[in-house]
């Protein structure tokens, strides 16, 4: 099971700033282990963010994103008390969803 994300969402003026830390190996599929065998690719492919169920961000990620990635973005139209939900899906089909209330 994937470890939880750490999400912060704060309202600044009329925009909500969301900062997300995800825990993921983000293996590129280019590296080899000590025995010379290729380590299979394992990385997040899809990231989506919703605010009270309404999509605010959708991204496709690849192997160029670092291990334990940090994502920061802003959107307009949010308010204090809104629920921001982040979901990622990796190339093995594993999923993780976490939620935070805008403060």
């Amino acid at each position: 099971m994937a470890d939880p994300m750490k999400i912060r969402a704060t309202l600044q003026g009329d925009t909500v700033e969301v900062r997300v830390l995800m825990q993921h190996e983000m293996e590129t599929g280019q590296r080899k282990d000590a025995a010379g065998k290729t380590i299979p690719a394992w990385h997040i492919q899809q990231v989506t963010a919703t605010n009270n169920g309404k999509p605010v961000l959708s991204a496709q990620w690849g192997p160029a994103v670092s291990k334990n990635p940090f994502l920061s973005f802003k959107f307009k139209g949010g308010a204090k008390g809104d629920k921001v939900q982040i979901t990622w899906t990796d190339n093995k089909g594993e999923k993780r969803t976490d939620e935070v209330v805008v403060s």
């Binding site: 830390l21 825990q23 940090f70």
Partner: peptide, 12 residues
């Protein structure tokens, strides 16, 4: 510093 993955360890 902004978005230090150490926070994931702190959480765990």
């Amino acid at each position: 510093q902004d978005g230090n993955p150490a926070e994931l360890w702190e959480l765990r």
